[in-house]
Nucleic acid binder design. Structure first.
Lengths: 210, 210
DNA sequence: TCCGTCGTCTTGACATTGACAAGATGGAGG
DNA sequence: CCTCCATCTTGTCAATGTCAAGACGACGGA
């Protein structure tokens, strides 16, 4: 193992080809989308031979799986970034997470598609399943903070999780597809207000007072 | 033009290769998904040479575009099938359409992905854009029936359209992905009740009484 | 009835891609 | 200094999408 060294090691023994391929892979993904993604394109971007990626990721889906795992981490960051600017009450926090969810989808559409609508990322790989589970858990805890009950133990609260997730995910997915033109055409402030209004209907209220 | 004739015309001049390729394409799509779809595979299923499809659909995306258009028609059929079994009041009808939306996604997952999460279907083709617009229109009219206002002219009602669509779409998409395990694990009746509960929160109420 | 036209379908070819095998390179540890 | 072996390269093959050229045969006109 060559440890992490950033300098270009010229020619053989790149130094940190794994990370370089992930960076190249994300550019490839951003520019060509999941469906236009090629392993050889990534290798070219990283300046290595076409077969080099195999030694680090096995096959093309292996690299995509690593990218999806990275995506889930960034996904959570987007949610937390919104929450940092929001009021601290549980409901405002969950609402902010929802807006962050949409932020992520619009900022990284190809990554979003890879994570939620592709069969190429392999969720049986621990790094990915754990990242995805962490994102789900974060939502569950957000609902728990409002409901006061652990959704894993309280089926009614788990339905709130499903409802919140479904609503936010659907809005994000359709906006990313260019559908939802009325929403996309709005200026930012109005769009956020509209999203908040819609998401708010899906969020649970305080305790059991629904 | 050979008109429509169903008998096998043996060898050259298939008779209705276009339709045969659409049927073959749907099988290919069902078995391999959008990402595993190959034009040559479709040709083989239809019993013609690998280049035959080009004369009817141009390229691979052309066939996928035709399949997506067909998908949107079936999509509407699924919604109407549910509505035929539901109460006739506008709210029950829109709710039923939502359940039909989910039915479609679960029954034809590859088609759903092609229609909503792929860049391979070309929405600039009239046959597809019209089919997609018809499906959107159907939703708009469903909301209109509840609100009493034309969402195309009333922005507030259009937000109801977005909310309803987003919620139903998100639930369908996530269930199709195998996420939403708590929902998927439920027996059918309970699942439908849960879906109805969630969708109900997104649907508009009678007139302006929100 | 015969023949030419044109849409339909086939064969053949080529570039691209994913994947595999075998070999070259050079850092690390003995 | 020398060997090991992970890393990376080159070479190759099958599969695929697409294009070009030609074979086929239904149709309409003479």
């Amino acid at each position: 193992m060559a440890e992490d060294r950033t300098g270009d090691r010229s020619a053989y023994h790149h130094g940190d080809l794994r990370q370089a391929l992930i960076d190249a892979g994300e550019r490839e993904l951003t520019e060509k989308g999941v469906e236009g993604f090629t392993l050889r394109g990534c290798a070219k971007r990283a300046g290595v031979s076409h077969a080099a990626p195999a030694h680090h990721f096995g096959d093309a889906n292996g690299l995509l799986t690593a990218l999806a795992a990275l995506g889930f981490q960034r996904f959570l960051s987007c949610q937390k970034a919104r929450q940092a600017e929001a009021a601290s009450d549980p409901r405002s926090q969950l609402m902010a997470a929802g807006l962050g969810y949409v932020d992520f989808a619009l900022a990284y559409p190809a990554l979003f598609r890879l994570m939620f609508a592709s069969s190429r990322a392999d969720f049986s790989v621990a790094a990915l399943s754990e990242a995805a589970d962490a994102a789900f858990d974060y939502l569950v805890r957000g609902v728990e903070a409002i409901r006061g009950r652990d959704p894993y133990r309280d089926p009614v609260s788990m339905l709130d999780v499903m409802g919140t997730w479904g609503t936010v995910h659907g809005l994000a997915d359709l906006m990313l597809s260019g559908r939802m033109k009325p929403l996309l055409a709005m200026p930012k402030a109005a769009r956020e207000a509209a999203l908040s209004e819609i998401i708010g209907r899906a969020l649970p209220e305080r305790a059991d007072d629904r």
